[in-house]
């Protein structure tokens, strides 16, 4: 049996009086691609942010056996070092070049010679499928897809155990999105990285994710394989999968 790398139990997050998430339970297994689905504003990003320790929450969030709500700062730092995060807007440091952006975690984390850092950065850029020429470019000189890839390279630079991706394919054309999915799936297979991603993109959902959960009305509506999720009896899910945009996946269902 594969162990749970992330285990969330009875998670509750509220902003003042407003509860955003209530008694959420999810389990992410080691080495899988796990998708968080849900309507806009359903609390998907909040769930991810709680696991990333950016949000105050109550309940149990266990990552690699450490309960984040009880852990001391040293343990939390260790967990943070094993995370790689890519936010929705890519959020590259605009005043640094792409190369410098990717090198930031390395320079912060350890005392390494510049030419080795240089090689590591170039390797990561190549790994996510970026051309070397972007090394000296600034983020605003890149297209949206390249910016996302650069952010992915930055998330990968310390060889994280888990990478979190917030809508990795949003704003990309279908070809780039496919390309991006392929990259994620390859990294998952090659390096054994666990991937947790938020997406609305049904191609990513059916194409690469192993398991998923659906957040609905502050709670987890369902958790399981894409096939399980698809056959849930829920109006929003039905609209998602069998509405205009989802139609083509009914074929997938029949396969």
């Amino acid at each position: 049996m594969v162990r749970n790398i992330i285990k969330v139990r009875n998670l509750k997050v509220s902003y003042g009086d407003r509860t955003v998430l209530d008694s959420v339970n999810i389990s992410v297994k080691d080495g899988e691609i796990y998708t968080i689905l849900g309507k806009s504003g359903s609390g998907k990003t909040t769930l991810m942010r709680s696991i990333l320790m950016l949000e105050k929450s109550t309940g149990i969030i266990e990552v690699m056996g450490v309960d984040l709500n009880k852990a001391n700062n040293d343990d939390k730092d260790l967990i943070k070092k094993s995370y790689g995060v890519m936010f929705q807007a890519a959020s590259l440091f605009t005043s640094l070049t792409v190369g410098e952006n990717v090198a930031v975690p390395l320079k912060e984390g350890a005392n390494i010679d510049n030419n080795i850092i240089f090689d590591i950065v170039r390797f990561k850029l190549s790994l996510v499928g970026l051309d070397e020429n972007v090394f000296n470019l600034y983020p605003y000189e890149l297209s949206g897809g390249m910016r996302k890839k650069a952010a992915l390279a930055r998330a990968l630079v310390l060889d994280p155990k888990i990478i979190f991706l917030d809508e990795p394919t949003s704003g990309l054309d279908p070809v780039s999105a496919d390309d991006f999915d392929k990259t994620i799936s390859e990294l998952n297979k090659l390096l054994g990285i666990t991937v947790v991603m938020i997406t609305h993109d049904l191609d990513s959902f059916f194409g690469i994710s192993n398991r998923a959960c659906v957040i609905r009305d502050k709670k987890v509506l369902a958790e399981g394989t894409p096939y399980d999720i698809m056959h849930q009896d829920d109006k929003w899910l039905k609209n998602l999968f069998f509405g205009n945009r989802g139609r083509k996946f009914t074929q997938w269902n029949q396969r």
Binding site: I112, D119, I120, F123, L127, L158, D159, L190, L191
Partner: peptide
Amino acid sequence: DTSFIIYLLKTNKKLAVSEKQKQLIDIV
């Protein structure tokens, strides 16, 4: 990790590795 592999590859020394490590080194 891949960073360490990159460093090792740059040293031009002979590496003795396990099967699983070899896969990773090949990717690098």
